[in-house]
Simulated assay, not measured.
Amino acid sequence: MDRTRHNNVLKVNLREAGYEQGKAVIRNVQLQVQSGELIGLIGPNGAGKSTTIKSILGLMPYLQGEIELGGANRRYAYVPEQPVLYEYFTLWEHLRLAASAYGMREEQFEERALELLERFRLSGERHHYPVKFSKGMQQKLMLIIGFLLEPDVYIVDEPFVGLDPRATGDFLELLEAERVRGAGVLMCTHVLDTAERICQGFILINDGTVVAQGGLDEVRVQAGSSSDASLFECFRRLT
C-alpha cells in the first residue's frame, strides 16, 4: 500500500497496554492513518480492538507507547459502539453541547446540524429525548455528532450496529465525503464484506497483537491465502 501520498493524521505505537501494570492486554500494536485514508481495524471478539481504541483515546490505566495526532486542527471524533446519552438533554441539546466543546460558531453549527438531521431523517426529533429513541436512532445521533465536528480523524467503533440499510447508505456517503475532504478514519467493524469494499487498508489483531497489516493484497500474502481470497477468508486463516 502506497503510504507516501498523504500526511499522517494518526500514528500509534503501543508497546503494551492493559488495566494494570504487568498484565498487558495488547502488545506491539503499531498503526498509522493518513489523510484521506480509511483503515479497518479487524479481529475476533476479545482480540484487543477495544483496548487499542481505548489506548488511542487515553482511557487505559496502564500504557507504554506513543500516540501522535496530526492534521490541521489536531482533533478527532470518536463514535462509540454504545451510544453515550444524557437523560435530560434533547437531541438538539446533545448537538449543541458537542459544538460548544469544540468552539463551533453558532451559524456554522446550525447549518451543519440541520443538514445532518435532514440527511439522517431526524429533523422531526430535534426537541425529543434520545434516551427514548430506538437503538438505530441513537446510533444515528452518535454519527451526527461525529460528522458535525469535521475533525482530522474519525475513530469509529462498530458503526453499523442498529442501522437500517438506508441509514447505512447515508453513513457511507458521508464517510466517503469526509475522506475526500482529507479526514482519516480508523473503523473497527465485524462487517467484513463492507470493510473489504470501502477500506484502503486493514489492521488485523488477534490475541492482543497485530497479525497482518496493509492493503488487501498484502494481507492475503501475510495470511498465506490465494490472490483472490476475500477479507473474510484471510480473517479465518489469521485468527
Rank of each mutant, 00 (worst) to 15 (best):
V191K: 15
V153H: 00
P44F: 04
I205T: 01
L122P: 09
L85K: 09
R179H: 12
P159S: 13
K135I: 13
D193Q: 13
N13Q: 12
S50T: 15
A47H: 02
G46C: 06
S227Y: 08
A47P: 00
M187P: 00
D207E: 15
S230W: 02
L31K: 01
G103R: 05
D193P: 02
V219H: 03
I203C: 02
P83Q: 08
G214H: 05
N206E: 11
A77D: 04
D157Y: 04
Q32D: 11
Y62L: 04
K23M: 09
L10H: 01
G40I: 03
F89Q: 12
G201L: 00
Y19W: 13
E107R: 10
Y154G: 05
Y62K: 06
A17E: 01
F109E: 06
E173D: 13
A229Y: 07
R181S: 12
E106Y: 08
F171K: 02
M1H: 10
F120L: 09
Y88W: 07
V191N: 15
N7E: 13
Q82S: 12
E107H: 11
Q82T: 15
P61H: 03
V211P: 01
A195H: 03
R74F: 01
R105Y: 08
V79Y: 02
Q139T: 09
T194R: 08
R126S: 07
T209M: 05
E37C: 10
D164H: 12
S225A: 15
M104H: 13
G70N: 01
Q200M: 08
V191A: 10
E106L: 11
G214E: 06
V161A: 15
L85I: 07
L186G: 01
W92A: 12
L163A: 04
R119T: 14
K11E: 15
A177D: 11
Q108S: 14
V25D: 03
G40P: 01
L57E: 04
E93G: 12
E150Y: 08
G70F: 00
T194F: 06
N13G: 06
W92L: 12
L41E: 02
Y78I: 09
V29K: 00
M104I: 12
I39H: 01
R181M: 14
K140I: 09
K11D: 11
E111P: 08
L231F: 08
T239V: 11
T209F: 03
A223T: 02
Y62H: 13
P165L: 04
Y76V: 03
S123P: 06
S225Y: 05
T52I: 00
